[in-house]
Design a protein around this nucleic acid. Structure first.
Lengths: 199, 199
DNA sequence: ACTTGACTTGACCGATCGGTCAAATATAAT
DNA sequence: ATTATATTTGACCGATCGGTCAAGTCAAGT
């Protein structure tokens, strides 16, 4: 009787779903195991601790974001700056979908965990810092291309890409705090207009 | 033997300090009582639940922000848009102070709780939503004055003030995720340059 | 002197926390 | 068929969770 789906993967998926929709501390190992249909002993066979599980969830979620959202949003079939708008649009549509399914705006998985755990768990903080750095790199690359074709000029690419990521995260947070996705639709278009001049 | 300081206030202060520097879920009622030098029974004499305590902490923290940070940042001794820069500067200095004291960038108290609890506790979510609305009103008022004296023209004041607040929150979150205050110094100046045009 | 009500104390509740472990079972290699 | 390894099971651990409660202390009002 081979497992219908991989046990380890089911734990990973359940943890992502539960922690994303609630919080790290509010979701216990027991709840994750119940949701995954797995006993606690099996959980600790695959993951040495809740923290390690969370690190694995962070990696897996980032890979999915990268392969699905980022690849699609930043594809070079449209001008660079338009890709930023598309990134916002796709994020908006994802949150709208979740809202329809669950009744809640859940925000950004990385932003949520960064906010909750950055002061408490250094390994997790470092992983999220790395992921944010990767996301920023995606934006930075778009800005470089935009400069190369003259869509944008004379900006501090490093600071501007960071500012755009910050703005994105802030909009996600406000949308979550209002349990309302529409402000994403209103505010995301301004993301591509942020500029920080070179020092 | 009258209490040196008010018990209720000591609970409030301890809760704010502990929850702000860690998280809502990570700080138990027992830890708050220990820090405040109060027994659990006394705690529940003053506050019916941990949630109600948290609502009271939100109110008290907002009042302090309003009376100290906002009053100072938004004082009309300088041009409107310069006040936004001052708001960023004062926030940066506060976080730098906390970092020096504790070794940690703790971000925005309201943003932290919004991120952790918005999907889990509706009364708390609503309180934070109201506080964000008040903060946005402060920015909105600055923008109105800026328009009145011609410092700014032709913008959607409602959306722009919301965008500036989002940007502020996002910068605070990134600073926390990097445990580094300097990005606040780099990114906050761009807050006053965000514009969303009228539809 | 007596009562009232605010406040404090410390013991206690069932539930859940993250994590452990020995034993059972399934799988694959030889 | 036997061995070795991977996986699963369910009982169990001490600690902590938010919250309750009866009893006691204390100051103020009458």
């Amino acid at each position: 009787m081979e497992p219908v789906v991989d046990t380890q993967q089911r734990i990973l998926d359940s943890a992502r779903e539960l922690i994303y929709s609630r919080s790290y501390a509010d979701v216990g190992v027991a709840a994750i195991c119940d949701h995954a249909g797995v006993k606690k002993g099996s959980f600790y066979h695959f993951f040495p601790s809740k923290r390690d599980l969370t690190l694995a969830v962070l990696d897996s979620h980032y890979l999915e974001i990268k392969d699905h959202l980022l690849k699609q949003a930043f594809a070079n079939d449209i001008p660079p700056m338009a890709r930023l708008a598309r990134f916002g649009q796709l994020s908006y549509e994802f949150q709208k979908q979740v809202l329809n399914d669950t009744g809640r705006v859940i925000g950004c998985f990385f932003g949520n965990l960064a906010s909750e755990l950055s002061t408490q768990d250094e390994p997790i903080r470092l992983r999220i810092e790395q992921i944010f750095s990767n996301l920023q790199s995606g934006i930075r690359q778009v800005l470089r291309e935009a400069i190369a074709i003259g869509e944008v000029q004379d900006i501090d690419v490093e600071a501007t890409s960071q500012a755009m990521l910050a703005y994105f995260e802030g909009v996600m947070l406000l949308a979550k705090s209002q349990n309302n996705v529409e402000i994403m639709g209103q505010l995301f278009p301004a993301m591509a207009q942020i500029r920080i001049s070179p020092r």
